[in-house]
Design a protein around this nucleic acid. Structure first.
Lengths: 349, 349
DNA sequence: CTGAAAGCGCTAACAT
DNA sequence: ATGTTAGCGCTTTCAG
């Protein structure tokens, strides 16, 4: 069952069938209709490999993420898949688990399958490995920052806006002793989030306390460990901001273990607004960064690069917004107010 | 840069290069060595599309899951990716979101990319759609149950073992009023879990109370809704078992909203043992089903089908174990005991 | 053991 | 507007 079969049955040449399938406008509509009918009837679809081989276009985009088990990424993948499929692209997803060996393997796979573009959503591990892709002129899209070569688009996340809102929210509640648990500091995005935090703190007239800035690793376990460290200091903060929600969930867990109540004894804030943040105990105040927006922008950037007539320079930067979402893990600092109701519980329905 | 370049530089024919790459044993070792050196030096790798086109082997396995945003699946994907890559296969993942339209699209994509086998990890939505794959003799692997055609392998999960352990754990604590929140009942796996529950209950001499068996949908939201329904009855259960962890997390959240303490006022048990179950408030007692085992078995089954000399019948069924993991969301039924310490908290470290 | 040559199913010149 | 034909990069007979 190939293009020849269709050609024979429809009584045309294979070239005409090919043109019909590819919507070349010069095909006689009557003939096109006949061809489509035969295609339907015989339930034919083109062989992607052959098509890719001859046209040099695989119609595959690669997506490199750091770890698929962090719920942030599946939500991103979902969006990426939806948008890519919609545009006729297949996607090849691979997670590096922060391991350079895996990253290398990852890139090799992308190369072998001849991806037409790659979205590197690892938040900043800009290894020279990626040069292998850049050198072959494969369009790339990064978050925040990347090699400033042509063919590289950037998704600029406005960390400052959301984080400022977060810090102000905390400050408005009366917090002055605010801690920050960072991501892995070799990640550019982790640096950016921290910088935004420090800056926002200063804007509120608060001097950052170095001891209260502790490095995490964007995992549950890292959040637990960081929270533990924070509580061990002579003077503890009254609020903890986290570089991502997984860290915050780890912190929540450690507070539970330490018999401390959130937000009564400690306020906790996350970043990402993953789905599950809505149902933690207590529901997590966090900063929303839209996975869908990120995914859509990535695909758009890649398509622009691939499909541009190579002459007209496509837009190279895309802005991604962030926004505070207040839930119940943040409150007044301890001892500040007369007893407030512990948890403003009411059933949703 | 293609096979011809290598042939020219190594001073052999392209056929010899091809044989070398494919480890055909008849190649003169000296020559093979020379060829490999050239390949290394020039950093060559074969064009997968061309290879697939001529050999008819895409070296791609498809993986169909229900929803990537349920943390169970990313963990499964990770395992599947690891094992498949290790065996030289690429993977094509697609989620159906329980939507038949998406399922159709999914299958179409698999067909177009000429996957050599598909693992259907949707837990039971055996649509006639899948016939499209079966008809083309594409090896398939299902969880629990599937069309008994040749070329179909089954991963048999031993729900009974884990669920019996769970029920007995509850019964041992003194619970008699035990509720079960099912998954979508059109899913075979959901039926199996429910059946195992009912059976285990009877084994303990407890008659299932129909009102306390409520249908969920394996989502957070479904868990919340089901818990709400359960609390509305005149007589509430003292323990709730859930068909998966996401449901249980939803239940935990609703208990929080309803100002009920877990496990003091209500015991809650999950199923799956996703990573995050370890840090819920309180940490979730659940039944472990190994994602990695599932993934490994799926790839093994597919490979066996693909690589068997079509004559020797590969093993067709693979057993997957389940095992109770006791944490802190289960306890004595309310009022049963003198006051026990509310939460056995201590820091881990 | 190695090389020459025939395609895999399709697209894209080039003719008509 | 349609048909003819030459490959895309590789594997695999078939000769030697």
């Amino acid at each position: 069952m190939d293009i020849r079969t269709i050609a024979r049955v429809a009584n045309v040449s294979i070239a005409t069938v090919s043109r019909t399938i590819n919507h070349v406008p010069t095909v006689n509509p009557k003939i096109a209709k006949r061809v489509w009918e035969v295609i339907e009837e015989l339930n034919y679809f083109p062989n992607t490999q052959a098509r890719a081989l001859v046209s040099g276009r695989s119609k595959i985009f690669g997506l490199i993420i750091s770890e698929i088990t962090n719920p942030f990424f599946p939500e991103l993948i979902q969006g990426f898949e939806d948008v890519a499929i919609e545009s006729g692209y297949e996607i090849l997803v691979s997670s590096t688990n922060y391991d350079p060996k895996r990253m290398a393997q990852c890139i090799r796979r992308m190369l072998e399958r001849k991806v037409e573009g790659v979205a590197v959503m690892t938040f900043g591990i800009e290894e020279p490995l990626l040069d292998q892709l850049a050198q072959r002129n494969i369009p790339l899209v990064f978050i925040d920052v990347g090699p400033p070569s042509p063919g590289v688009s950037l998704l600029k996340v406005d960390y400052q806006h959301g984080i400022r809102q977060g810090v102000q929210h905390l400050a408005a509640l009366g917090h002055r002793k605010i801690s920050f648990i960072t991501g892995p500091l070799r990640l550019h995005s982790a640096q950016s989030r921290l910088a935004a935090f420090t800056k926002s703190l200063k804007e509120c007239g608060i001097t950052p306390h170095p001891e209260w800035i502790v490095e995490g690793d964007h995992t549950l376990e890292g959040g637990v460990a960081a929270a533990e460290k924070l509580l061990a200091f002579d003077e503890s903060p009254t609020a903890i901001m986290c570089s991502n929600d997984m860290t915050a969930i780890g912190v929540l867990h450690h507070m539970y273990r330490a018999n401390l109540r959130v937000p009564d004894d400690m306020s906790v804030m996350g970043f990402d607004n993953i789905h599950i943040a809505e149902v933690t105990t207590p529901p997590l105040t966090t900063i929303q960064m839209s996975r869908f927006e990120l995914a859509r922008a990535a695909v758009t950037a890649l398509r622009a690069q691939v499909e541009s007539a190579s002459s007209l320079a496509p837009q190279r930067e895309y802005k991604i917004a962030t926004e505070l979402v207040v839930r119940e893990s943040t409150g007044f600092p301890k001892g500040t107010l007369p007893q407030v109701p512990k948890r403003p519980r009411k059933s949703k329905a």
